[in-house]
Amino acid sequence: MRFINFINKLDKRWIYLVLALCIIIPFLFPIGFPMKTTAPVKSIYDFIEDSIPEGGVVLIGADYDPSTMAELHPMAKVIATHALSNNLRVLFVTLYPQGAGMAQDVIENVLREWNNSNPDNQKELGKDITLLAYVPGVSAVVLKMGEDIIETFNEDGYGNKLSDLEVMKEIKNYNDIDLMVELAGSAVVLTWLIYANGRYGLNVGIGTTAVSAAEYYSYLQSKQAIGMLGGLKGAAEYENLLSKKGVYWGRKDATVGMDAQSSAHIFFIILIVLGNIAYFVSKKQKGGR
């Protein structure tokens, strides 16, 4: 009964404190709530795992900016890491100027994590991974890549000539790209689906924000896209798959974020349930009197 009284007169500040802890603790001590892997995420993972031979090429489109970075940045990291772990080559491409900074950050991060953890299989910029220079034109760029990728960009994002780079060896056009994963919170995803997939038959996977994910389900059903990572949750599922495989060493940003979200949501539900129990108990008491 003391407890019921406590709940009934609960000071808001206790709620604030617990909520803050629910969100902060996962950052310091990641929990890793169990989560099921959804089919669209699994199909991208399986594609990289099983369908691309060693030395194959994965193209990652980084068309996002700081505003959607929280959701899309972890996706870029996991996909790049996964590709490297299977000894695939990774090319980043961006159709918008803001994307270049994002992609460079991912490349730097992934290479550092990888090389720290795999001293006997070092990866190099320009040999295993690079960023294609930003070229204006959006859909025209996507189309032109279907003809000749090196001619489209000439340089990589660091000013090196693409034709000199080992990572570009034997890459002419989309026929030499095994998978493209476009990460964006905007409609630029459609550009890749319509032009690169529609006209050149490139395998396209989508990584997008939780808000936009609903729009793209129909493209999954029509098999225009091979799979999709939707929001923090999609990224977290992928991180889980990678750590199960044992090839992910970096901070699991998406998993941590999702942990914080989960624990906050669970706390909300517990709070509401407790509030109602206290409400009914005290109502009964009043009724009994």
């Binding site: 169990p34 949750k233 539900i269 509401i272 109602n276």
Partner: peptide, 28 residues
């Protein structure tokens, strides 16, 4: 915490939908 009490039919409906949607948003 304060508003979602099953005081009457409407309030109960409000709180049940809220809980369902909250659960539906997270892996749990």
């Amino acid at each position: 915490y304060r508003a979602f009490r099953a005081r009457n039919f409407d309030a109960t409906l409000l709180l049940i939908t809220a809980i369902i949607v909250m659960l539906g948003r997270v892996p749990l």
